[in-house]
Design a protein around this nucleic acid. Structure first.
Length: 863
RNA sequence: GCGGGCGUGAUGGAAUGGUAGACAUAUCAGACUUAAAAUCUGAAGGGGUUCGCCCCGUGUGGGUUCGAGUCCCACCGCCCGCACCA
């Protein structure tokens, strides 16, 4: 990255607070030291001011900050600093999401210990973040791998265990064969592990689960109250929770062995039911497996086919007739065959469905394959044809014509028919309306070392015994090796073998650790009292919670945010959070990424070769070869399009980096990093600095012209920038600041007005460029620190001018303008407008059909 | 398949239903300079022009409205989420 040249002149004045050149490295270090000394970012409870908790999603300590961090934390910092200057008691903490596989992978690849690697990275990243000048209360910093943190997490786990929010079960789990651990459903993406990308296998293991599914309904309902969350995120969570309303209907077996309970969201199609299909894991299937070798072979085939999620999605629909028959619940003289279907999921609904081929494509394909009946339950109005190879599945809001419907409906929408059918079944006690959810319980066991140990002991006599709280934290052992695949805790006898907390006999610790998403599901609450001897301090939590503004990437829209919402509820139940905090994040903002072009050449075999941005000048490499430019994409090491914040800060300063990542693009969208954009940001800051120097040297008494214009522009800018910051319109606020800077630069106003203008400019810029703003504030003799100075207030009287220029439209097209006193009444404006040349020309002697006058806005003449 | 979002100059993007293209980049011209850089001043959607202005223009086609980038309908394109969910 080329360094922008500095202005050549340099006039140092004796006694001046500033050098004439803008020197960010000097300014930034100085003001950061001043903030530290004043301790202004240290948060303490106070009854005098309203509290404001602003939080950015804490980083994983990979070892290096990237531009995405800079953008994320700068946005939070703008909010935090703005709130501080508007009289709020601000909490703005930072920590480290420090457990996880990369530390183990590093230990395997380069040797050493995950702990050394992680804490080393944290130290490095803290050192890289501090120069950004963020208004963070570093006294609250913690890492999730600190025993003080994960010990409290273990205490929380034990409380949740006692409250029945955690349980152990034998379950089919998603097994990642590369990371050699299980994954939550949420961590399986397109059948592949979210981290390793490996095809996920099915395995049966005994695992710990959080009972999140019990709260599915509430987690869904409460989304409506999250008005300050992006609609998109609420919708994604709603889809993920996946509520459906249907009915459980028992089908009576003809062999007298009870019923098979089927779940359906379309009981209105009951007339077309032609078979029942159960999951290969259904108790009915399992019972038959023992006595019927053919079925056993088929079930076995289903299980083997189930090895990968990816294969499952593409797998052919297969089934086998069990020979069992059930009675149709509405038409008891009809009997339906019971099949085992490989497509029926045991863990959704009841693990059994009735098939209605006419109105479900999958059922139809299945019926055609195995020659089962296809009967319509309804037709489209005026189109009474039987289904052939395309199932008739109209929207539930469309009207259809039912055939001999047992509940008596005829031409109604499917939804109306569903409601009527459920009523009909319930009235006869033949079935029960149900809401079901797609959301499953959250499996938290991981067969890894570098995570929070699950604090239980397995005893032959007592079973699963919770560790005693006074024995917490259960600390990870340091003497482990990673030369053999699998979990080192499993083969660590001195750590693993402990006496049973209950009976004292030799027992074994649980060697699984917790999913790292557990760590990040309550850290926001811990920040309110990071050194407390319990997971939280209720007084502190009640004061600081909720997070008023949470900021992070859209990639956490489901996992992290849903788990956190669950944890807040669990922490309320276990007494660690007040009821008011069950929705922990009042407002959520999802910011876009920082992207960059990719520079590519090709090797002799035509394969792409990528080049670092700093190696490319004017589209060429140092050796003069042309570089192909591929449009902007997420910065990634493999594409070599990463711009390192450290280099930018070294060349231009933190203020420039902060200013740039906020300008140009709306914060929720991606912003493209460009070298020219960064230079523009730097130039702007230099310009502001130069203006302040110039004003500092002005003759204090010389009269100027246009004071009023400058002050009006100033108040307009205060108004616009305040609106921009309040509404996350940082890019728009920055545009206004550019405009005002240009106005100030050209102004011929007197000293007092110019000084007021530049000090206001410094204040308005302070959330984005705090260091430069402090320097200007000091140079102009501002009281105290700009960071703690009260936010400027726009004078309403200065926002309205005496005269306004109104555009005149003729038939909606702009044809002229008119300047009138701002308070002129409508009739007078109309009269003057009609007298203009443009209107006279258009009227051509006639009279207008209509004249619309919008005061202060526009005049439209219809001819 | 289901659900959601987005289409504006060369580029990133502005526009509570009221002057489309703010601001920035890239570009061009001028000032300063021996020169370049930096800095400053200015131009710039497309087309036409008798230099007064005029016509066209926010993916495409319709609609509502005095007035639509903005609201409604349909289509096209791109992006994102979910998906054997009964």
């Amino acid at each position: 990255m080329r360094r922008a040249s500095r202005p050549a002149f340099s006039c140092s004045r004796p006694g001046s607070l500033l050098m004439a050149t803008y020197s960010p490295s000097e300014i930034e270090a100085r003001w950061q030291a001043a903030w530290d000394e004043a301790g202004i970012f240290r948060a303490t409870r106070s009854a005098d001011k309203p509290k404001y908790y602003v939080l950015e999603m804490f980083p994983y300590p990979s070892g290096r900050i990237h531009m995405g961090h800079v953008r994320n934390y700068t946005m939070g910092d703008v909010i935090a600093r703005y709130k501080m200057s508007t009289g709020h008691n601000v909490l703005h903490p930072m920590g480290w999401d420090a457990f996880g596989m990369p530390a183990e992978n590093a230990a395997m690849a380069i040797g050493g210990h995950p702990k050394t690697w992680t804490y080393g990275n944290i130290a490095d990243m803290r050192g890289q973040m501090k120069p950004l000048g963020l208004s963070i209360d570093w006294s609250r910093e913690f890492a999730t791998c600190d025993p003080e943190y994960y010990g409290q997490q273990q205490a929380l786990f034990l409380d949740m265990l006692e409250a029945g929010l955690v349980y152990r079960k034998n379950a089919q789990v998603n097994w990642d064969p590369v990371d050699m651990t299980v994954l939550a459903n949420e961590q399986v993406i397109d059948g592949k592990g979210w981290r390793s990308g490996a095809d996920v296998e099915r395995r049966e293991l005994t695992q710990w689960f959080f009972k999140i599914s019990d709260m599915a309904g509430e987690l869904k309902e409460a989304l409506d109250g999250l008005e300050n969350w992006p609609a998109k995120v609420r919708l994604m969570q709603e889809n993920w929770i996946g509520e459906s309303r249907g009915i459980d209907i028992p089908f009576v077996r003809t062999d007298g062995n009870g019923t098979i309970l089927c779940y359906s969201t379309r009981p209105d199609t009951m007339r077309g039911a032609s078979f029942v299909a159960v999951s290969p894991d259904h108790p009915v299937a399992k019972a038959l497996e023992a006595e019927n070798p053919d079925l056993a072979a088929f079930i076995d085939e289903c299980r083997r086919m189930d090895t990968t999620e990816a294969a499952m999605e593409k797998a052919e629909k297969k089934g086998m007739d069990t020979g069992l028959r059930v009675k149709h619940p509405v038409y008891p003289d009809q009997e339906l065959p019971v099949w085992i279907g490989n497509f029926v999921l045991m863990d959704y609904g009841t693990g059994a469905v009735f098939g209605c081929p006419a109105h479900d494509q999958r059922d139809l394909d299945f019926a055609r394959k195995y020659d089962l009946d296809v009967r319509n339950a309804f037709y489209m109005p005026g189109d009474e044809v039987e289904v052939e190879n395309d199932a008739l599945v109209p929207a539930k809001t469309e009207k259809v014509v039912f055939i001999d419907h047992f509940a008596g409906v005829r031409e109604v929408t499917s939804q109306e028919a569903i409601d009527a059918t459920i009523d009909w079944f319930e009235a006869r006690d033949l079935g029960k309306g149900q809401k079901k959810y797609r959301l499953r319980d959250w499996g938290l066991s991981r067969q890894r070392y570098w995570g929070c140990p699950i604090p239980v002991v397995h005893c032959d006599d007592c079973g699963v015994v919770p560790e005693k709280k006074e024995n917490l934290p259960v600390v990870l052992p340091d003497d482990v090796s990673f030369d053999i695949p699998g979990n080192p805790l499993d083969r660590h006898p001195t750590w693993r073998d402990v006496p049973c907390p209950s009976c004292g006999k030799p027992a074994k610790r649980e060697t699984d650790t917790m999913d790292t998403f557990v760590d990040s599901s309550w850290y926001f609450a811990r920040f309110t009292a990071p050194r407390a001897e319990t997971p939280t301090d209720l007084g502190d939590a009640a004061y600081w919670m909720n997070v008023d503004q949470y900021i992070g990437g859209i990639e956490h829209a489901i996992l992290h945010l849903l788990y956190s919402r669950f944890f807040a509820r669990a922490m309320r139940i276990t007494g660690h959070l007040p009821a008011s905090a069950i929705e922990p994040f009042d407002a959520l903002f999802t910011q876009g990424m920082v992207t960059h072009e990719i520079y590519q050449t090709r090797d002799t075999k035509g394969r792409p070769v990528y080049h670092l941005p700093e190696d490319v000048t004017d589209g060429k490499l140092a050796d003069g070869s042309e570089v192909e430019i591929i449009p902007s994409a997420k910065m990634s090491k493999s594409k070599k399009n990463v711009v390192d914040p450290l280099g930018i800060i070294a060349s231009y300063g933190a203020d420039t980096a902060r200013w740039f990542v906020l300008s140009d693009s709306p914060p929720e969208r991606d912003v493209e990093w460009t070298a020219s954009g960064a230079e523009a940001a730097y130039k702007h800051l230099t310009r502001v600095h130069t203006i302040s120097d110039r004003i500092a040297e002005m003759d204090k008494d010389a009269p100027g012209t246009g004071d009023d214009d400058l002050l009006r522009a100033m108040h307009k800018t205060i108004h616009d920038v305040t609106m921009g910051v309040e509404s996350f319109g940082f890019n728009a606020a920055i545009a206004k600041l550019y405009g005002f800077t240009a106005t100030l630069q050209k102004s011929k106003a007197g000293f007092a007005a110019q000084r007021a203008a530049v000090m206001t400019l410094a204040q308005l810029m302070a959330p984005m460029t705090p260091h430069l703003s402090e320097d200007i504030w000091a140079q102009q003799g501002g009281v105290g620190l700009v960071t703690t100075a009260p936010w400027p207030k726009a004078d309403e009287a200065m926002l309205v001018s005496d005269t306004v220029t109104l555009p005149i439209q003729i038939n909606g097209k702009r044809r002229g303008e008119i300047t009138v006193p701002a308070d002129m009444d409508k009739a007078e404006v109309e009269k003057l407008s009609l007298a203009t040349d443009a209107v006279q020309k258009a009227l051509d002697g006639g009279s207008p059909k209509k004249v619309i006058v919008v005061p202060g806005r526009i005049v439209n003449v219809v001819v």
